[in-house]
Design a protein around this nucleic acid. Structure first.
Length: 301
DNA sequence: TCTGGTCAAGGTGGT
DNA sequence: ACCACCTTGACCAGA
């Protein structure tokens, strides 16, 4: 089991997702930002390696405006060597990498324009992972999308659209359950139709109203991940106390985390902690796992 | 130098 | 029809 956190490191003094307003776009500025972001990414990866954090989500902002029409720069060519070096670092230390496009990327939108922009963004993210020379275990996680008042129709459209995607995208896309539209059963259904692995978001599962035995869910999830996909990826978070349901906790809730480990115990997977204090909680999680998940030892919950 | 309104992009749900 | 929310940091104009 590898533990990870998304996109930002609060210890390393370096912002690796520097972007800027569209209004201040220029070729020079873009190239400077990409260079900075790649340097920061390397520093964060090295921090992670030093601390045994072997799972990391790379920000969508690594190359600002990469899928926007304003971007005419051949960043793939200019930074080819830098991407390759980063990929070598990742592979040399056995790091697991994921990416997660944000809310604007909707594969099942009825709007062709939204679809076109979504595919462009997904292609960009796949391109980053390809330039790094990463294998099919580096994934891009995507929600099913909107419902549009016709869930069955919207799911069918997702499946149709998925089938039209390029091979390089299909090998990387995984489907993640969300908190109100598409639950694990919906994702499993789509997975059967497409062959896409299902990424289990344990926090969304609970918000969606999932009460089932986590071990049973994990058993279903695990089957969707083939040999080339690597271990299943799981997103974990806990509820911020006193906040709107769905708000991510500031730091890891040890009891809840240990309960989750216990509930999923027979399964091996890589876990992304979506918790606000990022690497701090990842380090705490590693400690807790080390203390509690050694074979033959009872859990101390 | 500091501050707070604003930022490419979509969808849902409340009014 | 319109607006707040999701979720977040950081850009950047104006003080």
């Amino acid at each position: 089991m590898k533990i990870g956190y998304p996109c930002i490191n609060r210890t390393v003094q370096c912002s690796g997702n520097k972007t800027f307003r569209l209004r201040s776009y220029s070729r020079e500025r873009l190239i400077r930002a990409i260079g900075n972001n790649l340097d920061c990414l390397e520093r964060v990866l090295r921090f992670n390696i030093e601390h045994g954090i072997l799972f990391f989500r790379i920000t969508s902002d690594l190359v600002p405006f990469a899928s926007h029409p304003v971007c005419k720069v051949n960043w793939q060519g200019i930074f080819k060597e830098r991407f390759r070096q980063l990929g070598d670092l990742i592979k040399a230390h056995g790091l697991r990498i994921s990416m997660h496009p944000d809310q604007f990327i909707v594969l099942n939108s009825p709007d062709e324009g939204v679809l076109r922009r979504s595919i462009a963004e997904l292609e960009y993210q796949a391109c980053v992972l390809d330039l790094m020379g990463l294998d099919g275990s580096a994934k891009i996680q995507l929600h099913v999308g909107g419902v549009y008042g016709d869930k069955a129709g919207a799911m069918a459209r997702f499946i149709r659209r998925w089938r039209g995607l390029s091979r390089s995208l299909r090998r990387r896309l995984v489907i993640e359950n969300d908190e109100k539209n598409y639950g694990i059963d919906d994702c499993l259904f789509i997975s059967r139709k497409t062959g896409a692995p299902v990424l289990f978001d344990a926090f969304h599962y609970r918000l969606y109203g999932g009460l089932g035995d986590l071990a049973l869910v994990m058993a279903d999830i695990q089957k969707t991940w083939g040999a080339k996909d690597g271990l299943p990826m799981v997103d974990y978070s806990s509820q911020k106390k006193g906040a709107r349901p769905g708000a991510h906790a500031q730091s890891i809730d040890r009891k809840d985390f240990l309960r989750f480990l216990e509930a999923t115990r027979p399964f091996d997977f890589d876990m992304m902690l979506e918790i606000k204090d990022k690497e701090r909680s990842a380090l705490m999680a590693l400690k807790l796992i080390h203390k509690n998940r050694c074979p033959g030892q009872p859990m101390q919950v």
